[in-house]
Design a protein around this nucleic acid. Structure first.
Lengths: 195, 195, 195, 195
DNA sequence: TATGAATGAGACTTCATTCAT
DNA sequence: AATGAATGAAGTCTCATTCAT
């Protein structure tokens, strides 16, 4: 062993953050890790025991990762909903779809771990619900302003979320992103545009 | 405690079938099993070692389960594609959607295991691809016959598959199935009906 | 590693017995073991995992050891109580005291582990209670037959048990057994002999 | 969460004393503590590291606790031995027995920890020997003054010590203290009273 | 073919102790 | 003197898989 790490004393937030960062990096990398705690602490240049100072189990870390990942989405849609400027809903929808697909497809392993994990967190856990709720709120406002046809916003948001995921998964496994973007664009137009 | 079972001699196919049945029952039950081989053999009233007579690893069993589960779907769509009768595409689509959602929602754990499994089989594994391909073929014929608007059949099938899953997941976690069926119906109409 | 142990297949009772034997041997040896499961399985020429086939934790093994050790005592006193022969109570008492002290002193580590363990088993656990009860019953009969002064049999048995332990501990740490035997003899005479 | 404590500066003796007090409180409480250093420092409202400023290991703390606990007993018997007043030996013996039983029974966990500890300190460790020696000395003087029958004082003291412990254990687990006191009283009379 | 006792690598976790601040 | 974040050796336990019967 070469890199004799010397005790790095950090503030709890900093260390916790470094651990989460390391976990995201590994999750994202798609490597086939079996010993996650060991791998993450190595990646974060910390001792194995340090992990358990901040997380009482690997599950708890997954929750933290999930929260950090979803926060991004929630924030974006929240800003949208709270904005007082006039919004070009269709341009925004297209942009968000493209951005989401691109982001998910890029960090392949991460999203699989965060969303497809068959761990203690069931399908549709809290974090995911928040995201869907944020999307629903935005759609709701778009309907109020007449940009979208009235449909159940919660269900529509859930479907949208799921479609974007499909697209990203497909793109991540090698399908052409342009075709998918076109189809998604076409789907949203036909589905949500007012007559 | 003397077990009532002692060397039940079965034909290999029968024994293998019993093991798969047992696995499906357990997978479907949604119980939090950690020790799968042990649980399945107990459920099938067989000894642990017997498992390895028929499957060389747990992964192999998962493949067998997956194949059996997907065969259903594939068969239905195949029959549709091969039929020479005239088909009422919209009635068929509605019926298939409703049936799929109902089936997936009912057997919650099983589908999670088969589709969301984070095991060696990646997202969009072979079995799933077969299913999607079967749906795509059916959609394709529907387009040829003018019932559906022309869209990329593979992508459309993938999206449909994913939407049905979302619906089933939502229903399984307690949402009202009627509302979802309505929205899915509405979505397919607007998306796929010719102008 | 040299002694490549080859899979020895034993009946569950035999294997369980071997493990308990090994545990008793080690406990008795007084060695300072930290990793008991590892040490016991090595001593029993078994794999570590085998331990957990028969005991779900080290505590459970301790209970088994305790039970086996105490069974001896209980049996002896039971035989005494159930005998229909006339009994020379004082000769018997002296003999039992000497035998008990000798046995306990000989297997120093074992009794310390079994009785002084501050583990989940509180002081005066079930096994110990059985032993005391067996002694009490014998004393009771001795009183009935007029050999002993009437005293509370349960309390007297408890005290006797504890005095014998003290004696054995003292002898095990090097004190002269003859002096102790004399004092115990003298104590029982004065305490229990009828006026 | 900002702790209200911040660098309470105490004199070394005071801080050491607080730590021992905290340890005694916890040991006495009978709670099932696994993490002693952590528990004691929390109880003493000090930081974990502070423990090692005053004790170089947990064993050292146990020694300190033991010394403080045994000092009480030793002092009482020492005073007895050194007193020049005439002593009513039987009244004193009864009183000491009752007091010891009561004290031990009350602080159940503490005495178990101090006397039954299966730690590095064997049975009959130094502290216990001091106590027994102090009792022996008192008995010795009582014999010299003709109050007690001559018996080996060291052995008698050891037995007495052990009997008192039995009584306390029994009372602590719910038996009636009055019965035990009576039997102990009766035992000492018959055993130690001159003819 | 069927069995189930046996295996052991390795995952998970703890906690006394250290040490930079 | 006091702190508490960091450490890592070492313990407990699991479970897919093997193999003697």
């Amino acid at each position: 062993m070469v890199s004799s790490r010397s005790r790095r004393r950090l503030s709890p937030e900093a260390r916790r953050g470094e651990l989460i960062d390391a976990a995201i990096r590994l999750l994202d990398s798609g490597q086939d890790v079996t010993n996650w705690v060991q791998a993450v602490t190595a990646e974060a240049d910390a001792a194995k025991g340090t992990f358990y100072v901040y997380f009482s189990s690997w599950e708890e870390m997954l929750v933290a990762v999930r929260n950090r990942v979803l926060r991004d989405y929630v924030d974006r849609f929240q800003r949208l909903t709270e904005s007082t400027e006039p919004i070009d809903w269709w341009a925004t929808l297209d942009a968000e779809c493209a951005a989401a697909i691109e982001a998910i497809a890029r960090q392949g392993g991460l999203h699989a771990a965060v969303f497809h994990s068959n761990s203690a967190l069931g399908p549709m856990d809290e974090g995911q619900q928040d995201t869907v709720a944020a999307i629903a709120k935005a759609l709701h406002r778009g309907m109020d302003e007449g940009a979208f046809r009235p449909v159940d916003p919660h269900i529509a948001a859930t479907i949208l979320f799921s479609v974007l995921h499909s697209a990203a998964d497909a793109i991540a496994t090698g399908e052409q992103s342009q075709r998918w973007l076109t189809v998604v664009h076409d789907l949203t137009r036909h589905w949500l545009a007012p007559p």
